[in-house]
Design a protein around this nucleic acid. Structure first.
Length: 211
DNA sequence: ACATTAAGTGATT
DNA sequence: AATCACTTAATGT
């Protein structure tokens, strides 16, 4: 089962013995949309290797206010989990399936040995850590330097790319939660984008015309 | 028909 | 950009 799923992308970047180990200890699972994979405060037990779909990674402050940080997609892994996992600290992030996704879960104990044993694994982890860091920096830039109207538009176009569909099935309230603002603000700015001809609004639905 | 939820809007801070 | 207060529209029971 896992063997076939690893063909293609991962087959090209991991050496044969490592692939065999992944097949031996990994668990393949299809996760449903909105399924919670990792919550804040959880212990890390597995590291995900993304095959398809998308996982939304978000943060929450002590008041329970949320903010979306970035997405994990095909070929990605969450190296944050890996490095934090080595120190067995608790998760500071939340991961929720944005759509139906296929993931291989690898028990975290295996990973340290692989770092020494497999060059391809080492490169993969370092590379992925770098990608995560850059995503994080982008998230900071967005938060610190972009105005709300720009943030909304970026949010919409990112989401369109991830979902592979210009029609987003979401409510203004949902967007407000992801951007940590109020629904009223979202409604107003979305209206403005609609007047500019960039999007079309419906109930529970936003069609993005330019992205 | 009524209740609930989503979205639109003016006024105020 | 946030909050309040209220309206209108769509949808579920």
């Amino acid at each position: 089962m896992i063997r076939e799923k690893l063909e293609g992308y991962y087959h090209a970047i991991f050496e044969k013995e490592l692939l065999e180990e992944i097949i031996a200890v990994g668990t393949y699972r299809k996760v449903k949309q909105d399924e919670l994979l990792l919550d804040i405060g959880d212990n890390f037990e597995y590291i995900p290797l993304m095959l398809s779909g998308a996982i939304k990674i978000s943060r929450e402050n002590d008041k329970g206010e949320e903010i979306a940080l970035y997405f994990l997609e095909h070929g990605d892994t969450c190296t944050i989990t890996f490095v934090s996992g080595l120190q067995s600290s608790k998760s500071k992030i939340r991961g929720v399936a944005e759509k139906e996704s296929e993931v291989i879960f690898i028990p975290i104990e295996k990973l340290e040995a692989w770092m020494i044993k497999y060059k391809s694994w080492r490169s993969y982890v370092i590379e992925s850590y770098n990608i995560r860091l850059n995503e994080m920096i982008e998230a900071i830039d967005t938060l610190a330097f972009m105005k709300m109207d720009e943030r909304i538009f970026k949010y919409l176009s990112d989401k369109v790319k991830i979902m592979g569909d210009p029609i987003l099935h979401t409510t203004h309230q949902d967007i407000a939660i992801d951007l940590n603002t109020s629904r009223v603000v979202i409604s107003r700015l979305l209206k403005k984008l609609e007047n500019d001809g960039k999007i079309k609004l419906f109930r529970n639905k936003v069609e993005v015309l330019q992205y």
